[in-house]
Simulated scan of single mutants.
Amino acid sequence: MKKVILSIVGLVFVGLSVWLGYYFYKKSKTDPVVYKTENPFVTTIVKKTVATGSIIPRREVAIKPQVSGIVEELYVDAGQTVKEGQLIAKIKIVPNIVSVNNAETSLETARINFENSKKELDRRKGLFEQKVIAEQEYNQFLVDYDLKREALQAAETNLQLVREGASKRKGQISNLVYSPVQGMLLDVPVKVGTSVIERNTFNAGTTIATVADMKSLIFEGLVDESEVGKIKEGMDLNLIIGALEGRTYKAMLEYIAPKGDTSEGAIKFKVRAKMELDDKDFIRAGYSANADIVLDKKDNVLAVKESMLQFKKDSTFVEVETQPQQFEKRLVKTGISDGINIEVVSGLGKKDKIKVVEAPGATKGS
């Protein structure tokens, strides 16, 4: 029995010896770690923040009718350029029965009053010519006659406006819609036969068309509260419009909202920038855009990739190669960063080879 146990122990010992020998053999054959190195380089670093928004016209006007009714004629289409005072549409007035009845009653009352005033004036005129009454008394009836005549004309005009939307007396036509400004028609939301409501104190009215000056466009967007303190009016912006690839537009920041609003769970501030356009540029209203706001810029500075930096407490350092695959830590002073490259103010030269710090778990190669 003892011989069996000793044999088993001996076999285990031999097995472990063989395994350990193989393990140390493999370890001796493992290739040494070789770290990559990179040199500092000269570049231009731009520190910026991004605002998201859209392109809109600076001046956009909604054209609304002066009377309620039905669109009888449309003389323009969306996309067409119109001049100030150009005819846009004609409204067919559908008279309100109650309003027409009241206007007719007022007209009849004014006519009766006027006829009575005229008869009384004729009678008083004869008495005045016979010098039975004084001139002052006669003038009172003359003034009353003039007032009744004006009331009759006003009642006639009111009835005509209620029925037709036009006044022959003053040549005013309220059922014709004109463009108040020069520009491009962005939208004509109504069609012939559409019912429309007039604008008044209690109602905004139906929009017949929307006109805007497409030569004066602005960018309107939002900036996060963490960045708004770094920007100011007059800064340059680079606008990138998603629908127009391969082109960057220039703009100048002209407004920063004094009060922020909650958007997507964060406080953001509205900003507005004036776009710089050429005569040949045509940009449609409503395009979404991103604005790169330049906070700082330095040309031809020595820089390294920000990922190469290492930090310990308040110190910033890199590992510089002194001999092949031998490195020493060197403190550096840094400047502005664009998130990828960072300026090196002091501590490095162009010929220094800096150890590339790879992410944990990454494979190091030669």
Rank of each mutant, 00 (worst) to 15 (best):
L176V: 08
L176P: 06
Y178G: 00
Y178S: 00
P180V: 02
P180H: 02
P180Q: 04
V181P: 00
V181T: 03
V181M: 01
V181S: 06
Q182I: 00
G183N: 02
G183A: 04
G183R: 02
M184Y: 05
M184G: 04
M184L: 11
M184S: 12
L185H: 00
L185A: 03
D187M: 13
D187C: 04
D187A: 07
V188W: 12
V188M: 10
V188Q: 07
V190N: 06
V190M: 08
K191F: 03
K191C: 02
V192H: 04
G193W: 05
T194S: 15
T194Q: 02
T194Y: 08
S195R: 15
V196F: 10
I197S: 14
I197R: 14
I197C: 05
E198K: 14
R199G: 00
R199K: 14
N200D: 15
N200V: 04
T201I: 13
T201L: 14
F202N: 05
F202A: 04
N203Q: 12
N203K: 12
N203H: 12
G205T: 13
T206Y: 11
T207S: 01
T207M: 09
T207V: 15
T207Y: 09
T207R: 13
T207F: 05
I208M: 10
I208H: 08
A209P: 07
T210Y: 02
T210F: 01
T210L: 06
V211Y: 00
V211N: 00
A212S: 04
D213F: 07
D213C: 10
M214T: 11
M214V: 12
K215N: 10
S216H: 11
L217N: 01
L217I: 02
L217Q: 11
L217C: 04
I218G: 08
F219G: 01
E220D: 05
L222C: 02
L222Y: 13
L222Q: 15
L222R: 12
V223H: 03
V223Q: 07
D224Q: 11
D224F: 08
D224H: 09
E225P: 05
S226C: 09
S226F: 15
S226L: 15
S226Q: 13
S226H: 15
E227S: 13
E227W: 11
E227D: 11
V228T: 06
V228P: 09
G229E: 09
G229Y: 03
G229N: 07
K230H: 15
K232R: 14
K232H: 11
K232P: 07
E233N: 15
E233D: 11
E233S: 12
G234D: 08
G234K: 09
M235Y: 04
M235P: 11
D236V: 03
D236I: 03
D236N: 13
